[in-house]
Amino acid sequence: MQAGVDDFAQFVEARQRALQRTAWLLTGDWALAEDLVQTALARTWPRWERILRRDDPEIYVRRVMLNTWFTWRRRHWRAETAFEALPDRPAPGDLAAEVELRQMVGHVMANLSHRQRCVVVLRIFDDLSEAQVAQILGCAVGTVKSTMSQALAKLRSEPRLAELMERQVQ
C-alpha cells in the first residue's frame, strides 16, 4: 500500500507541471488548470494500484483530465477561479507582451471545437502519438487523424495565427 502511495507521489511530483501546462492550453486559465489537474489526480489516486497493473498511468490521468474538462464544459461551468491571494512572481520581461501572446493563443484555440482542441494539444504540445491520443479520447486512430486534419485546416485559415508565428520566428 505504501509503495502505491510513494509511486503516486513520485508521479505527481514528476508530471504535475506538464499536466498543468496541458490543462492551461485547454482552459486558458491557470487557476482552472490547477483545479483540473487536482481533480483528475484526486479521481485517479484511489485506483492507482489497479491503474499501474493494467494501464499507462500517464494516459489514464490525461483521459480523466479530459473527461473532467468535457464534463465541466457540458455543464457550462463558469465557477469562480479559486484564488484568494493572487500568485506573486517577479516580472523578468515585458509582462504585457506575455499577456498579448496568451490572449492571442487563447483566441485562436477558442475557434476550435473541444475535441479538436484536445487533439491539437495532445498531438502537438504533448507530442503524443495518434494511437495514444486515440486511447485517451476513446476513439479510433482514424478519427484522431481526421480531427487533427480539420483542426489544422481551421488554424491555417486563422490570420492571427500566421501573424503570431511570424512574430515567434523573429
Binding site: 505527481v12 504535475q16 507541471r17 499536466l19 498543468q20 501546462r21 492551461w24 492550453l25 491557470w30 488548470a33 490547477e34 489537474v37 487536482q38 489526480l41 500568485p87 512572481r89 506575455e98 501572446l101 496568451r102 492571442m104 493563443v105 491539437v120 494539444v121 502537438i124 504540445f125 507530442d127 488554424l155 503570431l164 508565428m165 515567434q168
Partner: peptide
C-alpha cells in the same frame, strides 16, 4: 505551433 504553445504557456504559477 508547438513552439508557439510552449512560449504562450510558460510555467504554472503554483505546484499541485
Amino acid at each position: 505551433l508547438s513552439r508557439l504553445f510552449n512560449a504562450a504557456v510558460g510555467e504554472p504559477p503554483k505546484d499541485v
